[in-house]
Structure formats: structure tokens, C-alpha cells
Amino acid sequence: MKILSMSGFIPEHISDTIRFTQYGGDRNISNYCGYASDFISRVMADDTIDGAVYPKSCDSTRILTSYLSECNKFLFQFGIPPYNVSGAKEHLACEIKAYKEAVEAHYGVRIDDIKERAEFINKRNEALRKTYEELDSLSYSDYMEKLHEMLEKPLAMQEWSGDIRKREKTGKRVYVVGSFLSDTRLAKIIEDASLTVAGDDLPESGRLVYSEPVETEGDIYLNIAGSILSMRPSPTQVSFKKTMDHDFESIRKKDVRGIIFLTQKYCEPYDYLYSVFSKEADKAGIPAVQIKVNGTEDTGKAALALEAFADMI
């Protein structure tokens, strides 16, 4: 069972998945997110992958099934409720249960260790949070590389040691906003530009570590749904005000001097978010730079822009 997953909304509590990071995709769908496009390529071309699970949370993921339907592999799409919608928790709980049943039916397995998995995830996230809270004295690139490495493994092997290379803080403290950081060279580029990442709201990092632990007593599906929905809202959950409230609170607390907005080209939730985020950043007097990349193996003009940004702040 090797299910490729995309997005922090996918419940690892149910079954092992391989979190998608990078792939040299040949599928080039125009006006379409490169991350999703590379995801499609990997599912279609990589014979070691026998399934895919993904959200319905933006225009690109919404139509993933249309592109994947010919792959004859296990496919499951989660509808992600927008923030604060009535009945969202109950609805997501039903989806999680349906996912569990779909995995069991397709793979001919029985999943009866959800509580244990949830406990493990709670511990793992707690350990991650401790590391995250010291982010500004750590190597961000080392942190992101180890984090991505961990997420590709089966859950039982996802022990987080917190053993991250230390790095001297610089006065150029930045906050990173964005979707999944598929190419960790970008983290290296940020460091090479003498910037210190004080915090982020990436789905695999800042957003993950502040999710509430799963209660293992009671309705486990409802509790998992509650934990997932307790994460700081992604712009795909379309409450930009809530997203920005969280971000700017962190930005103020962490004494940030600049904001790096790092996204895929054709990622419409982040493009829309940026148009209001940049206004707030202006009001707060904090410079922000938007860097767009194409696909999972592209650093774009990041080096040029980040160096210049570091010189500016």
C-alpha cells in the first residue's frame, strides 16, 4: 500500500501515506498549478505508487480526479469544508470514515489501529512544535529537509528527534507564508541570503504544529475531524481574515522584519490572499516579497529576489 498524498488535510490517522514533495513531471497543463501537475505525473508514471489521496480545496485539486481517472489506482478525494461552516466537523468525520472504508475495500485490509495512530501523531506533533518554537536559532533548510524526509515514511517511522543543526540568528527575521515547500533548496536560498526564518504558516510546518491533539476517547472520526479543522485555516478554507489574524499575530510576536510569500504560479487561493495580505503588510509597515515558482523542482528567480529583499530590510 503506497498511497501518495497531497495536503495537510489528509488524515494520516487512518493509513500510511507518502507525502508528495517533488517530481520531475512531464505533464504540463497550462494555467494549472505545477505542484498538482507534478503530483499527477508521479501518480501516473511511478509504478511504486498504487494510490492517491488529495483534497478538493482549490481549482487545481478540484479537477485532479479528471486527470487521474485513467491510472487504475486507488483514488480518494476529500472535500475540505471552508472555515466555520455549519456541520463541517460532522461532515468531515463522515468523509474520514468513508476514506477508511474505501482503503479497506480496495486493499483488502482491516484498519483497527486508528486510536494508536492518533496517539502517535499527537506525540509527534508535540515534538515538532517544540522544534518549531525554536525555529529562529535553527537551520531552516535542515529543518525542512528532515521534515519532508519524515513525512514520506510510514507513520511508525516518523519519530521526530528534533536534532536540527543550529544556526546563528541574524537580525533579518522573516516569516514565510505559502503552500507546501516542495523544493527545500528555497529554504537554503533564504538562509544564504542571511535571513532568519522566525516562523511560517506552511501546511507541513507552522500550520501542522498548532493543530489540537486528537482526543482518543469518544467518536474517533469526529475527533480527528476536529483536530484537522483546528489547524490555522489555509487560504483554501477561504477565511482570509482568520488566516491573516493568525499570521499577523505570529508576525508581531516574533518581531519579524519581512514577509516571504512563496507560492506556485497559478495557485489561485494564494494569489487572492496575496492581494489582501500585501495591503495588511503595508499597513503594518512590514515589507513583503512574493516569489512564484513553477512546479516542484523550480526555484525561479528566488535567489535574486530574496537576496535583494534581504538587502532591503
Binding site: K56, S57, C58, D59, R62, P82, P235, T236, V238, S239, F240, K241, E268, P269, Y272, L273, S275, V276, K279
Partner: peptide, 12 residues
């Protein structure tokens, strides 16, 4: 999914 994102800019 674009429409709810767009509407957020109007809400702002």
C-alpha cells in the same frame, strides 16, 4: 474554488 477566494477580497 476561485469564487469564495475572490469573495474574500470583496469582504476585505
Amino acid at each position: 474554488n476561485t469564487l469564495p477566494a475572490w469573495w474574500n477580497t470583496l469582504a476585505d
